[in-house]
Each structure stands twice: as structure tokens, then as C-alpha cells.
Amino acid sequence: MAIQIEPLKCINCGACELGCSFYRDEVFTTMSASIMMYREEKRNYFGLMLKKEEEMVLGRPEGVEVQKDGESSGEEEANASAKPILMREPCDECKNAMCVRFCPTGCLTEVD
């Protein structure tokens, strides 16, 4: 099951981080989640980053963007074979995902 993000439904509560971390470690922490909140607090710009095995899904308020591993943004030709960094384990696309179950707004849903 893959996770679908509807960024404008996000209220930045972080329940997804907490849920995913619990799924991984059976403790409450925000540290081991594959999904992570992102916030520029003073600008009130916030969204979610979902690390997948080979891409990063960025749920930005202006839309969802998928950053493929190894994609270069142009100015970084020298490093074209490197990948974006988010120091988390990738999402294992578990079924009945905690991130979805505890998301209070329906911002996250499971899709086939």
C-alpha cells in the first residue's frame, strides 16, 4: 500500500510521525518515522516529507512533488548520481499504516 498525501488537509500535528515511529519501534518518539513534518514556522509554510526507497515525496502546500533518487536539479550536474537526503529509513508501505490511522484530517490515505 502506498501513502497518498493531500497537503492542504495537513494541520501539521505530527500524528503521522508519531504513529510511524511507533510502528517501527513500539515506543513514542518522532525520530524513526519515514514521514516527517516540515515547517518554516514564521512563514507558516508547512508540509510533509515521505521518504520512500527510491524517491522522496514532498507534500508541499502548493502541491505534491516527487523527487526521484539521483535526479539532478540542473546546477548540480557533478553530483547527478547522488540522491536527496533525509536521514530516515524509507517507508516500507505497510498495510493499515499507523500514519494514516492516526491522521485526524484525512490528509494521508492508503492507495494501491
Binding site: 516540515y38 548540480e76 553530483n79 547522488a82 540522491k83 536527496p84 537526503i85 536521514m87
Partner: peptide
């Protein structure tokens, strides 16, 4: 933990 969106390749190893 604060680092995001960096790209590294060191030697032949990503």
C-alpha cells in the same frame, strides 16, 4: 536531523 535535501557521493560510494 535538521539536514534535508543534500546530495553526497563519496568516491564510488553513495
Amino acid at each position: 536531523n535538521g539536514l534535508t535535501d543534500l546530495r553526497w557521493k563519496i568516491g564510488e560510494k553513495v
